[in-house]
Computed example of a mutant assay.
Amino acid sequence: MIRGVRGATTVEFNDAEQIITRSFELMTELVRENNISPEEVVSVYFSATEDIDAAFPAKSLRRLQGWTYVPVMCMREINVPGSLSKCIRVMVTVETDIKQQDIVHVYHYDAEKLRPDLKSGKE
């Protein structure tokens, strides 16, 4: 079965190291909580709000052991008035036997506001 695993985080500044570090934190927890191995991953899509352009969040995946060949892309999040700023979102499509309701979606920092029903992470 192919499932989508969602997550999001925020940064305080448009700073390359913070973008990559926060994206790495997010992916590390998402992978751990869902017991994902890179061989099971179909693709990973990151989006970032327009106020983040100092680094590609996808670069964080290269810090994960064994993720060298996982297909990954970055894109711009649409600019909706009043939406959360400095936000990085991720969608990981993965082959898994986990039931949809048992997938652990991960939201860190201010991104917890996006899905308070799925509280999971760093503040």
Rank of each mutant, 00 (worst) to 15 (best):
P57I: 00
E39C: 00
Y45M: 11
A54C: 03
N35I: 10
P38Y: 03
S60V: 01
A48G: 11
I52E: 06
D51V: 04
E33M: 15
N34L: 07
S37F: 03
V42R: 13
V42P: 04
V41S: 10
D51M: 04
I36F: 07
R32G: 08
R62F: 11
I36Y: 06
V31M: 10
I36M: 08
I52P: 05
P38K: 05
L61D: 05
E33Y: 12
N34I: 05
V42Q: 12
A55G: 04
R62D: 08
D51H: 04
F56R: 15
A58K: 11
A58M: 10
E50C: 08
K59N: 12
F46H: 05
V44N: 09
A58W: 01
A55H: 01
D53L: 01
E33H: 11
V44Y: 05
E39Q: 14
Y45F: 12
S43T: 09
S43N: 13
I52D: 05
V44G: 09
R63M: 13
P57Q: 01
S47Y: 04
E33D: 14
P57A: 00
P38C: 06
N34V: 05
V44L: 08
R62G: 02
E39W: 01
P57K: 00
I36K: 08
R63S: 09
R32T: 14
E50P: 11
K59W: 06
R32V: 11
A48M: 14
N34Y: 05
F46N: 04
A58L: 06
S60P: 03
I52Q: 03
R32I: 12
D51I: 03
R62E: 10
T49F: 07
Y45E: 13
P57L: 00
I36D: 09
V42A: 11
E50R: 14
A58R: 10
L61M: 14
F46W: 06
P38H: 08
Y45W: 09
R63I: 01
L61F: 02
V42M: 10
E39H: 05
V41G: 06
S37V: 11
Y45G: 05
E33R: 15
A54F: 01
V41E: 06
S37N: 12
T49M: 08
T49D: 07
D51L: 04
Y45K: 12
S43I: 06
D53P: 00
R32Y: 14
A48L: 09
E33K: 15
K59F: 06
R62L: 13
K59G: 01
A54H: 03
R32N: 14
R32L: 15
S43L: 12
S43E: 15
I52F: 02
E40R: 10
S60Q: 02
E50Q: 13
A54G: 05
A58G: 15
K59C: 00
E40P: 00
T49R: 10
N34K: 06
S60E: 02
S37Q: 14
A48R: 15
D53Q: 03
V44S: 08
V44H: 08
S37P: 00
E40G: 06
A48T: 11
P57D: 00
R62Q: 10
V44P: 10
R32P: 03
L61W: 03
I52L: 15
S60A: 15
E50L: 11
N34M: 09
N35M: 11
S43V: 09
E39T: 09
S37D: 13
A55F: 01
